[in-house]
Amino acid sequence: MSAQAPRRFTPVSVAGLIVLAGLLVAIPFLTTTTSLRQATQIVVSVLAVLGVNIATGYGGMISLGHGVFVGVGAFATGYYVGDLQLPWLLAIALGAITAGLAGALVGVPALRIRGIHLALVTLGLAIVFRPLSKRFPSITGGVSGRSIDARFDAPGWWPSDGRMASSVYRYVFCVLIVVLVLWATWNLVNSRFGRSMRALRDNHMAAAIYGIDLVAARVTTFAISAGIAGLCGALQVLLVPFVSQDKYPAQESLVIYASAVIGGLGTIWGSVLGVLARTVLGKAGSALAGYDGLGPLGEFFDLLDESAFVFGVGLIILTFLFPRGLAGLGRKNQVPK
């Protein structure tokens, strides 16, 4: 994979940025409390996809288990803010760090287990996560989950008020965090560390010869990527103060991975595009499934309601047609190896 992150903006990416920024500003004015929460959840889910992108796209370590780190982030944040009564900001930061530490633990075997075998281990992790978290009911709420006794409400100085105030506050907070993390990741992958990460991905032998510490680089990469996914989980708790193991089935991890691939591995915008694709496909699918004027064909369109189906098929088609994902559509003949 020779994904050189372009340092300069192309006209297409500038236009895309402007449209995206306009959309983000417009959303709170156009929505109700419920749909604003859903919009915020979509924005937050960019982080989980970005996490996979860092491990797989930049670090070259296939991870099919990032849903696990989202879950760890959520459970940990719920525990810190609900049981330990820590302030929200601290709880969120600690939640992300906890997920990052879990990621570092997984990163240690990833030193020797590579490629398809790592995919195998992380898939196993994704499958084990639900039964494992049921064994710790005091933190995870066991089978049925538990609500967290804390609310992230708008403070006194917040200008807007009324019913929407706290929803808008949460939205703005989450958007700011996501933008901040995207910017930080952009800088990270273009830093010295980012270059060593990519060198490691493309040829670990050569990277080692050039003096890159393989152990440190791999573990750090995995920890950062898991921490960002954990941040996604932490923000989920902020939006809906309820944690439950059934939000993190193995399929969720796989859909996160699929989003990262569909959006485009090895580009920051790919993560945003992947989430957009997931949202648009999901909405279009349920709209088509609900439309009755299709006659006998209608039964087939019912399938589109399941975004996992659309994503599975999309993943296969994309692998054949656009191996670089949606983010790679505009670029010429750079096929990942």
């Binding site: 398809i116 189906f309 599975g312």
Partner: peptide, 17 residues
């Protein structure tokens, strides 16, 4: 490896749903 993983994961998701 990534391409092959993608195909089988896509197949898994699609078949499952």
């Amino acid at each position: 490896d990534v391409a092959l993983v993608n195909i089988t994961i896509g197949l898994l998701l699609a078949t499952n749903s």
